[in-house]
């Protein structure tokens, strides 16, 4: 699983770098715009350890933000699964909020909370949470009639049993949604760091942008790709373990 995902990423990454180099030579662009392959390699080696630490910092925030989003999405999703006015309100609010580009709110958060961990975490959660919530609500509000009928007919249904049935029956969908939202958590964290934070790989990219140093940006992108692949693979593995356990 990891092998395949890393292989796919490296292929796409290499294709991207190659097209940049090709563009450089075809359009006779200077090293200032697109550095040569040797310069990219040298820069990558020089920043590798520092960027690795930065990526680890970003990944840590993304994982925590993702976990918080999952917990919140399930808590609110369970409350919002009902066809009551609370459910409708939660659904409508989540639908409208997730349609709004959260990154535009990031400056307000940085003004209010400063540029520390809390602001990065909050933006990561906000970007990841709302699409996740919508998916969780739609999965958990879908009745599994063939299983639920007996409990409804005999008056044994309660919300815990209902959630258990729906989560169990849709475990594949839920794990897919959780794995998919991990990318959103990573994106949210990097965007937050890029906008105003003072740490993480997004912050390093911002500095590299100010220096117009494409080599550093490419090195950062490589490490982001590798770390995201590792995280997604870990989640997929966990999802498979849970699914296998359910199918046992």
């Amino acid at each position: 699983m990891l092998h395949k995902r890393l292989q796919q990423f490296v292929l796409v990454y290499a294709a991207g770098v190659l097209s940049l180099i090709l563009m450089k030579y075809l359009l006779h662009l200077s090293d200032y715009v697109i550095p040569g392959p040797l310069e990219i390699w040298r820069t990558a080696l020089s920043v590798f350890v520092r960027y690795l630490r930065n990526v680890a910092d970003t990944l840590w925030i993304a994982v925590v933000g993702h976990l918080i989003s999952i917990l919140l999405a399930f808590a609110i999703g369970i409350a919002g699964r009902r066809a009551s006015w609370i459910g409708s309100l939660i659904h409508a609010a989540a639908y409208n909020i997730q349609a709004y580009p959260m990154v535009a709110v990031a400056p307000i958060i940085f003004i209010l909370l400063g540029d520390g961990i809390i602001a990065r975490l909050l933006i990561a959660v906000m970007i990841c949470y709302f699409p996740l919530l919508l998916s969780v609500i739609s999965i958990l509000s879908e009745p599994v009639d063939s299983v639920e009928h007996f409990y409804e007919a005999t008056g044994r249904m309660n919300w815990r049993l209902q959630m258990r049935i729906r989560a169990y029956e849709n475990i594949h969908k839920l794990t897919t949604v959780i794995v998919g939202s991990a990318t959103m958590a990573m994106v949210g964290t990097i965007v937050a760091e890029f906008v105003a934070a003072d740490a993480g790989i997004g912050y390093s990219i911002r500095i590299a942008l100010y220096q117009s140093d494409l080599s550093k940006i490419l090195a950062a992108l490589f490490l982001i790709g590798i770390s995201t692949s590792l995280y997604l693979t870990a989640l997929e593995w966990l999802g498979n373990v849970i699914q296998r356990k359910c199918q046992a």
């Binding site: 063939s146 299983v147 009928h149 007996f150 007919a153 005999t154 258990r164 049935i165 169990y168 359910c246």
Partner: peptide
């Protein structure tokens, strides 16, 4: 009055003996 049909399923997280006993 109870209605049951042939498309109904028991939850899959335990053996059918345990599922029936729980109800």
């Amino acid at each position: 009055i109870l209605y049951t049909h042939n498309m109904e399923r028991l939850p899959g997280w335990a053996s059918i003996g345990d599922i029936i006993l729980s109800s």
